[in-house]
Design a binder for these strands. Structure first.
Lengths: 236, 236
DNA sequence: TCAAAAGTGTTGGGATTACACCCATGG
DNA sequence: CCATGGGTGTAATCCCAACACTTTTGA
């Protein structure tokens, strides 16, 4: 892998290893895809908006670190946590040589614990209205969205963002937010129902219309199947 | 990002940062996709087969490190170098806490400098006949192939593996190797020519048949366009 | 009764698959 | 002249995109 001289050369200049987590949530009321940000507590850039992150501890892998901070900030275990990219530019952090392994996760926005978010001075921001973030975190958010879009085509990831019971109009709005584009609603229904992913329930959600929209839940068996085998949920 | 106590906690337990590079080449004579491996020089696992890699130096980013070792081992600059995944299991290296950022690159096998490969006790192995590698390097190779397959569908990456002039039968064999499946050759020609990527030349390659196969080269303008906009080169 | 959201089908065009034979040439 | 690999076309099918009106019901 390396020669010894390189190894000892490295020893005096440790590289610090951090993780940052792009935590996505879908606000069903506002029909907006959101990202959790907080005001960074340490220098450099203390007080500026930042993704949630942490150094990787000696006894944990990066995914464990990403999972740990997710729980710290939201009280939730991740339904969906995927490594995005490792950012390694030499000057990305002016204070130390720090590389950051970025993850992205999908959570149910209605379940997170508000007091934890408040305690950390964190807040949810619309994907289209992200403020200036520290270092390369804006890049991380934008890379995460692209990844989420690509994954949504091949796997039914979007369901991780919705409550167990949801309506087709909600799911439709979610896909429009993920893809950042208008979708034909008749074709959407046809395509999504054709996957066999959805079980229609008897009940209706009447909070957004007088007629009410039927509840659906996703079929876990079919869901796991498509997660493995892949599908093609893509709209023009 | 973190609190100070975590920072100082980390300081005494540095995590070492390495890169490993899955270098792909296409052997046009044997019609095989190959990966460059070498016998690891340092403990642990000295003498065992390994991907080519190095620690990341204090003044270089990971991509620069990956590029550096590519040049060290092949004498080539990378046409195509992409970050794959960062492997961070705590016990992956029994000696130290080392994480590895894996890259994969595509090179023209006929151009690499043999003496460098020999000097490093390296060799080319068929993608279907990879020996047991150190640590998680078999996983890296298999992840790299999956990534190469996915990228090949959306972008014309395969051309990075071929010389400037190549024949359709060669390109066809290359895609079969990448996808690890049989492809209908008439449909392949139709689809690949329909992209407008290929310029047919006057000359023929007669090394593999009496009739000879026409040379093609790829159209750089169209190539860059499809690299950006994406395409859909996928076969049943 | 009306406003506001939910729900529903068809058709035409383009793309994809499956499939088998002739061509050119050097030995 | 023949063995070897190179090259070609069509028909049937499937999938996708485009598109507009009816239903329900609470206020």
């Amino acid at each position: 892998m390396i020669d010894e001289s390189t190894s000892s050369y490295i020893a005096g200049h440790p590289i610090l290893v951090a993780v940052d987590n792009v935590i996505f949530g879908f606000d069903a009321e506002e029909e907006k895809l959101k990202v959790l940000l907080f005001r960074r507590k340490i220098e450099p850039f203390a007080g500026q908006w930042s993704l949630v992150g942490s150094f990787v501890r000696p006894n944990e892998s990066a995914v464990v670190a990403a999972s740990r901070i997710l729980t710290e900030f939201t009280g939730l275990d991740s339904l969906y946590l995927e490594q995005l990219h490792c950012y390694t530019n030499v000057d990305r952090d002016p204070a130390d040589r720090v590389i950051s392994i970025a993850y992205y996760s999908l959570i149910q926005l209605q379940k997170y614990r508000k007091e934890l978010v408040e305690k950390h001075h964190a807040g949810w921001f619309e994907i289209n209205d992200i403020p200036d973030l520290v270092i390369d975190h804006n890049q991380m958010v934008s890379d995460a969205l692209i990844r989420l879009q690509n994954n949504s085509r091949r796997k039914p990831v979007g369901f991780n963002l919705l409550p167990p019971k949801f309506t087709l109009p909600q799911l439709f709005k979610l896909y429009q937010e993920i893809y950042q584009q208008q979708i034909d609603d008749r074709n959407f229904r046809k395509k999504i129902l054709a996957t066999g992913l959805l079980d229609k329930l008897e009940t209706k959600d009447k909070t957004t219309s007088k007629k009410g929209a039927f509840h659906y839940r996703f079929n876990k068996t079919k869901y796991k199947e498509l997660e493995t085998d892949g599908c093609d949920i893509l709209f023009h």
